[in-house]
Nucleic acid binder design. Structure first.
Length: 417
RNA sequence: GGAAAGGUGCAGGAGUGGUUUAACUGGCACGCCUGGAAAGCGUGUGUGCUCGCAAGGGUACCGAGGGUUCGAAUCCCUCCCUUUCCGCCA
């Protein structure tokens, strides 16, 4: 949710930003509702002040055994009016809030303006791409017996897979490697619930927009998490984080569940898009003045993982049109897939500034008696395993076996598959 | 799934229709006292919205939402959550 004051003082900025992000939302209507809302508040609160005053007079009169009937009659009318105005106000307020929730975050000035992913900007490339054609991960995985898509489909449905034998061990090793690296760089590890309630989904912005993309259990009105970002960020929902704990960085492993409704046709083969995958998520809660340097540091943390795994990778600065609803700026990290002869997105690092914090009500105070302020939140994948596994299988396959990169050796009882 | 108890401010905890502007205790902050400290004494102590240049004012908030009433933490209804016991179960 954006700051109402920005909306009031600089509606043009909000409009321009929404347009740059390809969002359609009626800013003028929101302003009009806001004005209407404030008028009603003034009116109804004046009446409430009157009622409180006279109510006290009635109490005093009764105590002194003085007749107060005329005042009671008078207040009966006032109370009726209050009730009427309150319900009007509730309606205006709910319309206003509904509209406010649809306004996307204002993108940072540094984000290139563009409609589609074609206008994204590659800001850094590390390593060399290859042109030698290699078998793709599906082929290799089948040969070596480390992934089973057919049985995944039988047991669950398309978009689910079994990791088998050394494949399962490799997956486990990746997760542990990511967690150990990140915790050694100052992230505090957590294991979270994998199902969350509605308020949490609203807090991080999955609801109401992404409802279609999530697995929902109607019986209990709970959602399977699409990313650990949800529980990790909501950990501090409605909290006042002690100033001494900022900037706070946490990480957590979770499986991620995504319906991927309507995403057929692009990057869907094998492991490139699945309904359930494993990921280690990085989340930061920072002081507002630090969030941009913390974003750079987060990207470096992810680069560290990719470097240790020996990948060719690049940084992709998303343009406004490709930047998500809640994000002010997003940098994707992509690895080179030798089998696909293409770049695969493996991480997305975003600064949400105060947008999520405002929704989820996550604040801090600089001193005991200073005003509460919203923290800034950031998150990024560090890392999601499926595409890492794809790139790894392809890169380290020598035609016969996969030679496990050294950084994973401590986590495995074998060095080849 | 069955039963019971409970949900009040920073924490503990009182409070069953009108001096509750939420008692009291503790915590914390500031001040007094002191050579310094402790003890003691005094003062203060939340959040949202809103009006105001500001100082400051108004209003709402006792798990959530409704209702009754001139007036609700308090009475009524619905829901949520926590704890304990029983049942079932990894």
């Amino acid at each position: 949710m954006i700051d109402i004051n920005i909306l009031r003082e600089n509606p043009e900025l909000v409009k321009q930003s929404a347009e740059n992000k390809n969002a359609k939302v009626d800013i003028d209507k929101a302003l009009e509702l806001d004005e209407n809302r404030r008028k009603l508040i003034v009116e109804v609160e004046n009446l409430k002040a009157l009622r409180n005053k006279v109510t006290q007079e009635i109490a005093d009169a009764k105590k002194n055994k003085v007749d107060a009937q005329s005042k009671i009659d008078e207040m009966r009318v006032v109370s009726g009016k209050i009730k009427e105005l309150d319900s009007q106000l509730a309606e205006v307020e709910s319309d206003f809030n509904g509209l406010l929730l649809q306004i996307p975050n204002i993108h940072d000035e540094s984000v290139p303006v563009g409609k589609t992913e074609n206008e994204n900007v590659i800001t850094k490339t590390v390593g060399e791409t290859t042109s030698e054609t290699k078998p793709d991960h599906i082929e290799i995985a089948k040969r070596l017996g480390i992934l089973d898509f057919e049985r995944g489909a039988k047991v669950s449905g398309s978009g689910f897979a079994f990791y088998t034998g050394k494949g399962a061990a490799l997956e486990r090793a990746l997760i542990n490697f990511f967690l150990d690296e990140n915790t050694s760089r100052g992230y505090y590890e957590m294991m979270t619930p994998f199902m969350v309630n509605e308020e949490s989904m609203r807090g991080t912005g999955q609801l109401p927009k992404m409802a279609e993309d999530m697995y929902h259990m109607q019986e209990d009105n709970m959602y399977m998490i699409p990313t650990a970002e949800v529980p990790l960020t909501n950990f501090h929902r409605d909290d006042m984080i002690p100033y001494s704990e900022l900037n706070k960085q946490i990480c957590g492993y979770s499986p991620c569940f995504r319906r991927e409704a309507g995403s057929y046709g692009k990057d869907v083969r094998g492991f490139l898009r699945v309904h359930q995958f494993n990921k280690v998520e990085l989340v930061k809660f920072t002081k507002p003045e630090d969030s941009w340097t913390e974003l750079d540091k987060m990207v470096e943390d992810v680069e560290n993982l990719l470097s240790k795994l020996g990948f060719t990778y690049r940084l992709n600065q998303l343009c406004t049109g490709d930047t998500s609803f809640a994000s002010a700026k997003t940098i994707d990290l992509e690895v080179w897939s030798e089998g696909e002869q293409n770049w695969l997105e493996v991480s997305s690092c975003s600064n949400f500034i105060d947008f999520q914090a405002r929704r989820a009500n996550i604040r801090f105070k600089r001193t005991a008696d200073s005003k509460p302020e919203f923290v800034h939140t950031l998150n990024g994948s560090g890392l999601a395993t499926p595409r890492i596994l794809v790139a790894l299988i392809e890169k380290y396959y020598d035609g016969e076996k996969i030679n496990i990169p050294e950084c994973l050796h401590p986590y495995l009882r074998f060095k080849t598959i």
